[in-house]
Amino acid sequence: MHEFSIAVNIVDIAVEHAEKANARRVNEVELEIGELSGVVYEAMETAMEAAIKDTLLEGAEVKIIRIAGRGHCSDCGKEFGLANLFDPCPECGAFNPEVLAGKELRIKSINVD
């Protein structure tokens, strides 16, 4: 359940931004989480629900934007969808592409009152 520690960090960052903006409450927090980031989406949702309690984010909608993995083959240069880190290039079969997207673990924005 490392998702919980990550959720606590997310809430800390969101509260910091909300306080800076003199917000009364946070209505929504928008996260970008890549499919190759190493977190389980369901666990992340549960962890966020618990982590926002008794904070400015209490009751806020947690919006998770899933970002699909994309790789760039360092051998043949092809760009392709990457479902797993160990997937080979569909063009030439080489492993270990450069990961272009899918490792995100970011807070994109918050909506506050």
Binding site: I6, N9, I13, A23, L105, R106, I107, K108, I110, N111
Partner: peptide, 18 residues
């Protein structure tokens, strides 16, 4: 509808503190 609500761009890594 949160007439006075504001959108704040954060764009920060969740694990930046660590």
């Amino acid at each position: 509808a949160h007439a006075h609500s504001r959108q704040i761009a954060v764009e920060q890594d969740a694990l930046q503190q660590n």
